[in-house]
């Protein structure tokens, strides 16, 4: 295990808060069909001063990564102000964006004022027809392609993230080609989730079994041996162990997917929320149990496909394996046992 991998393992094992994701706003300039955000939350958003105090608290706790997310984080009126402050305080800044507004002037400001380590950009297909169909904004694919060239010109590192859907599952190879063209990594999420308010309508876009199989084959081909399967820690993932997510109203969650609030930074110090918190202790126990339950599935277990937050959302128990994980594990087992098993590099 490399020095850094060992440090990451320590953050999970010793509950060291290392990465904090900030959902700055749920406002967005796109309108993705399967978006999980609740569009009209009623709670009072965090103000500028409280964010600055929060940054100081996080710095004093040794937090390294600050991830600006949304909605679309650039749609927050204080995005650049907060980003500049975060940079001055020495955080590693990561940004999750749809890329639609990252035109010339914005990209330049990003580089000069925030100097983010990486921008994770959502892509929905390999062509305008598919991408625009999912974003429901005409011209969004062409705009994104233009903006990716701009990011490259400004030496802004980015990776492409895509959610596998029944609309884009036939474009996996083409999307890989597209990512290679920009020399950017491409990461797929094969799990569409219900909305945060429980609305299951996004699930209508879930990929087919064939689409899932194709993605699993690609992932097995590209993963170094042993990577991406059994975690070497007692937890299933870093949720609530080394990471948290904070929504625009200040509610704190173990991760962006696991929407079980453990406190609110508008009336609590984040250090208080992180320490001696009964709700968080239960979450950590569930996380450990989730790992045990996945290990019980045996060698075929598709580890990356399970999410405790998703389990909590669909079944009310974060450690219970839900049906789509069984399907992915079955497909993984079939691929591993097949004669055309992909060669692991």
């Amino acid at each position: 295990m490399s020095g850094f991998a060992e440090k990451m393992r320590q953050t999970w094992e010793q509950n060291i808060l290392f990465s904090v994701l900030l959902e700055l706003t749920y406002r967005c300039n796109l309108n993705c069909v399967f978006c999980y955000n609740e569009k009209n939350p009623q709670e009072k958003p965090i103000g500028r001063e409280r964010y600055l105090k929060l940054f100081q608290e996080l710095k004093s706790m040794g937090v390294f990564n600050l991830i600006f997310s949304g909605g679309e984080p650039l749609a927050h009126r204080d995005f650049f102000f907060l980003g500049r402050q975060a940079r001055e305080m020495g955080f590693v800044i990561r940004i999750k964006s749809n890329g639609h507004a990252l035109h010339q002037a914005t990209a330049r400001r990003l580089k000069e004022e925030l100097d983010p380590f990486i921008i994770e950009i959502s892509i929905h297909g390999a062509c305008a027809e598919t991408h625009d169909r999912q974003t429901r904004v005409q011209g969004s694919f062409d705009q994104l392609m233009q903006n990716l060239h701009i990011l490259r010109a400004h030496k802004l590192r980015f990776q492409l993230n895509s959610v596998l859907t029944c609309w884009n599952e036939n474009e996996l190879t083409a999307m890989q080609r597209l990512a290679r063209k920009f020399a950017a990594p491409l990461k797929f999420d094969s799990q569409i989730t219900p909305r945060d308010n429980g609305d299951p309508s996004p699930l209508a876009l879930a990929p087919s079994e064939q689409g899932l199989r194709h993605l699993l084959q690609i992932q097995l081909q590209s993963a170094p041996q042993g990577q991406g399967n059994t975690p070497s820690t007692r937890n299933y993932c870093g949720a609530g162990a080394s990471t948290i997510a904070i929504d625009p109203a200040g509610n704190v969650y173990p991760c962006v997917q696991w929407r079980q609030a453990i406190g609110n930074v508008q009336n609590q110090n984040i250090r208080e929320i992180w320490q001696d918190n009964a709700a968080l202790a239960d979450i950590r126990k569930s996380n450990e149990q989730a790992r045990k339950n996945m290990l019980a599935l045996g060698e075929k277990a598709a580890f990356g496909s399970f999410c405790p937050g998703m389990a909590d959302l669909v079944g009310g128990n974060a450690s219970t394996i839900y049906p789509s994980v069984h399907l992915r594990s079955k497909l993984r087992g079939e691929i591993l046992n097949s004669t055309d098993r992909p060669k692991v590099r």
């Binding site: 440090k7 953050t11 290392f18 040794g62 937090v63 390294f64 380590f117």
Partner: peptide, 11 residues
């Protein structure tokens, strides 16, 4: 350069 302390070492 970005740096932090992490469990008695530095990253």
């Amino acid at each position: 350069i970005r740096q932090t302390r992490l469990a008695d070492e530095g990253v």
